[in-house]
């Protein structure tokens, strides 16, 4: 059985994990106002998202639905999905 998680992942957490697991595109400033910038514009393809979502799941012990890779097009959307309980405790 699963329970709703109370985990809160911040934008700073997300950008740190993006850097660690998928690197940072030249010319992109992840510390800037990127909350609504599409991942594609930040230089991250679906595989990079798969990689970072894997890291989030491991670090926070949560499960994020596979569809997040395609459904969450921006950091804001991904964080909303994780923090609103769309993710479940693993």
């Amino acid at each position: 059985m699963t329970t709703t998680t109370t985990t809160t992942v911040t934008l700073a957490d997300l950008t740190r994990m993006l850097r660690e697991s998928a690197g940072e595109e030249e010319g992109v400033d992840l510390d800037g106002d990127v909350i609504d910038t599409p991942f594609m514009e930040l230089g991250y393809d679906s595989l990079a998202l798969l990689q970072v979502i894997g890291e989030i799941q491991r670090e926070y012990g949560i499960e994020i639905p596979d569809d997040a890779v395609v459904d969450a097009e921006t950091p804001g959307a991904l964080l909303a999905l994780i923090n609103s309980g769309g993710a479940t405790a693993a």
Binding site: R19, S21, A22, G23, E24, E25, E26, G43, L47, A48, Q51
Partner: peptide
Amino acid sequence: IPSRLMPQ
């Protein structure tokens, strides 16, 4: 190697 290519 650019940062984006390192993990892959």
